[in-house]
Amino acid sequence: MRYYIERRRGVAAYQQIVEQTKRAVRAGALKPGDRLPTAREVAETCAVNPNTTLKAYRELDRDGVVELRQGVGTFIAAAAADRSHAPAAESPLYAELAEWTGRALAAGLLEEDVRDLVELALQERQQTAAGTARSSTDKRNGGRG
């Protein structure tokens, strides 16, 4: 499990930590009882503001993903196990995605483009779900693809 903090458009660093932690739990890479890096460790390895990390951990705590134990550390909560699907990597969905990714790269897309497309698909999904019903296209992708 590693955090990749990217300076991406519109995604705050703390959200990235939250997302990546949840993803790791879902994928089974983090198991109940595992300790997350301290804010200091994240700061020293990722140059991320410790308040940002703590904010992310507080949000994860609220969501029941982790447990903040005062003076000890931040641990993956036992309840979080329920959220983890069967190892995601074994699911047929992953196989499909892997196959699609291969095609995309073969078609000349950059890794960045692939990530953007996945992100875009997720965003549209969210917006449809939220009912704002306004198709929004990231203008950066307007000329590409």
Binding site: T38, A39, R40, A43, E44, T45, C46, A47, V48, N49, P50, T53
Partner: peptide, 14 residues
């Protein structure tokens, strides 16, 4: 720059 920021933020966290 990154190393410096990381080291500084480490102390801030501590």
């Amino acid at each position: 720059r990154r190393q410096t920021v990381a080291a500084l933020l480490g102390e801030v966290a501590e």
